[in-house]
Design a protein around this nucleic acid. Structure first.
Lengths: 167, 167
DNA sequence: GTGAATCGTTACAGTCAATAATCATTTTCC
DNA sequence: GGAAAATGATTATTGACTGTAACGATTCAC
């Protein structure tokens, strides 16, 4: 952290790295969310579209499991995507309790647009680095993500963990 | 994103870098918050302690300005820190509207302990990387942070930006 | 010296997400 | 074959959190 005094010899060169990570990461998330606004989407929608696209006709339960979000929260999110005509809930004849989730044609198109938005976002975010440096950064981050057992494509989100310190 | 089909030749090697950044960053923030729980502190407290420690006797207004938090929110946060005996609000004889914020002895001790906690956190988080790789990562991130005009030590927090997409 | 501006505080309101309860359907097991 | 337990989706409720606005005290401008 703040080493504004030149007295001590900065024992660790990478001191504050964890903070830097969290800072830049939050910035990335925030800026991406901004880019999503014109599309009337929130970050959680993007993850849903991705998983729905690849997991052909999965149930809401399975989706929630894959993304780590509560089923009750999924209901609203999918409602919104359905209202926008991006996702449809098809009846599952085998098990009439569950829905089979599918992307509509518009949903596929939107998903592709999201790819472009994400690329633009990344381009802006990493403007300071050249191509090889970006690859380096990605490699380092991937290794951290793997070692920390972060599931690819699953965002930790910002869910409560133990309640705030009771005053 | 998801390039699960080997058909297309992965045009960008660092595709998904922005997501990775946000993912690992959120993970870092979450884990750090967990480590703060036993101390009965939240991440925002840490930033406050740091700025109060260095800005000798600044006002709440100035603190809020420096950290980008609303004065009304600061009231509660400083209340909590004062209850825990880490910070004190001294009367400012020059301007009786403002308080001069100072760390107590216990506050200084706690701040030093936070340094240790942060180092442990970082050690665990970056276990996958050796010392030189950490320095590399820190350098790359610093360049992004600078280019993106992120103020050192100021966390973007998770504040609203434009209201959620109205359904 | 009166009025505008500033600081800290409190009150208020809107948003959001997790828990628990509900309803339909399906599976288990006797 | 049928009652009871389990499962999926949904709704209701509760609680936390945060930004806006109003408030009282003090200081500054003129």
């Amino acid at each position: 952290m703040g080493r504004s005094r030149a007295a001590q010899p900065d024992s660790k060169p990478a001191d504050g790295l964890a903070f830097l990570l969290s800072q830049v990461g939050a910035h990335s998330a925030l800026r991406f969310a901004e880019r999503l606004e014109p599309l009337n989407l929130v970050p959680a929608h993007v993850g849903i579209l991705r998983v729905v696209k690849e997991g052909n006709g999965l149930s809401q339960q399975a989706l929630g499991e894959a993304l780590g979000v509560f089923p009750s929260r999924l209901v609203q999110l999918i409602d919104e995507l359905e209202e926008r005509g991006l996702v449809e809930r098809r009846k599952n004849p085998a098990d009439r309790r569950t829905y089979a989730l599918h992307l509509t044609e518009k949903g596929v198109a939107t998903y592709e647009q999201l790819g472009r938005v994400a690329r633009e976002h990344q381009e802006t975010l990493c403007a300071a680095l050249n191509e090889s440096e970006r690859a380096q950064l990605a490699s380092l981050l991937s290794r951290i993500a793997t070692e920390q057992q972060l599931a690819p494509g699953v965002h930790p989100g910002f869910r409560k963990l133990g309640g705030p310190p009771k005053a």
